[in-house]
Write a protein that binds this DNA or RNA. Sequence first.
DNA 1: TTGTTAGATTATAATAATTACAATCTTGTA
DNA 2: TACAAGATTGTAATTATTATAATCTAACAA
Lengths: 139, 139
Amino acid sequence: MAKNTLKKLGLKLTPQRLAILNLLEGNTKHPSAEDIYNKLKPQYPSLSLATVYNTLEVLVKAGEVHEIRIKAGKRCFDPNPIPHGHFLCRICESVFDLDIKPLEIQTPCSIKGYLLENYMIYFYGICPECQEGDNIKDR
Amino acid sequence: MAKNTLKKLGLKLTPQRLAILNLLEGNTKHPSAEDIYNKLKPQYPSLSLATVYNTLEVLVKAGEVHEIRIKAGKRCFDPNPIPHGHFLCRICESVFDLDIKPLEIQTPCSIKGYLLENYMIYFYGICPECQEGDNIKDR
DNA sequence: TTGTTAGATTATAATAATTACAATCTTGTA
DNA sequence: TACAAGATTGTAATTATTATAATCTAACAA
Ligand SMILES: [Mn+2]
Ligand SMILES: [Mn+2]
Ligand SMILES: [Zn+2]
Ligand SMILES: [Zn+2]
């Protein structure tokens, strides 16, 4: 629940933060900062894109939200704390969850002197919907 | 050899492209477009950053170079065609190769209807050098 | 060689995502 | 209710990247 998340992190309870957290809760769409802004703007006309970025930054730093870097130049955000893979469709550009068995690696751990704190697996290809009909394109 | 790569791809042999390819050959530093530009500018004063981007684009499209999206907002490039993992140190921000046994997945393949053409694994943490002394910082 | 031309390079402008800033506002607490 | 720390906002600045149009040159044939 959004309210508890903010309290746990020692953050002030503001309507903007609650709205952002509520929008993210259970959301598997992997929205960008601008997606979130556009979704909330109608209900919160005073909302600023800067606030969306600020809020996402504290949530990511706190580990409440993960930053997905699957597409160039644009981050997207994921509230799902359970480790899972991500898939970017090169046709529709959507990002999907892909429940691939995670690596046999547990984090944190140390491999060849590198301290691994986290990892991400990104897959690229074509999603089921975009494979229908004549959508399939050569690379 | 850079010359052969260009011929194979049906591209004109220009000093700029040869310089970029030579700089990349065997390079494990994962340079950004700007890194490449800055490295070559002294020897090729007329070189334009646009040319670096253009060249990288054709090389990536041809599969000769891989685009690494391990850090937000800035791509870096890798001429190594052998699948391998990448590690970003959160202290020095360097990207290292990490020879982790790849997934049991072979690409292309299809999982749950998703056509997987490619995948990347990114690790985050602290590199060996940055773990020395008092460099270790809490997250 | 030389001429031709498709394609490459360049400088620069434009765009897109993100961050910085400073003024104003609000939450949490006394 | 009054205050102060922190949050929000609008806007400017920054950064990475892409687009554009003029100029240049590698490749090829005469
Ligand atoms: Mn996800
Ligand atoms: Mn590499
Ligand atoms: Zn798709
Ligand atoms: Zn380091």
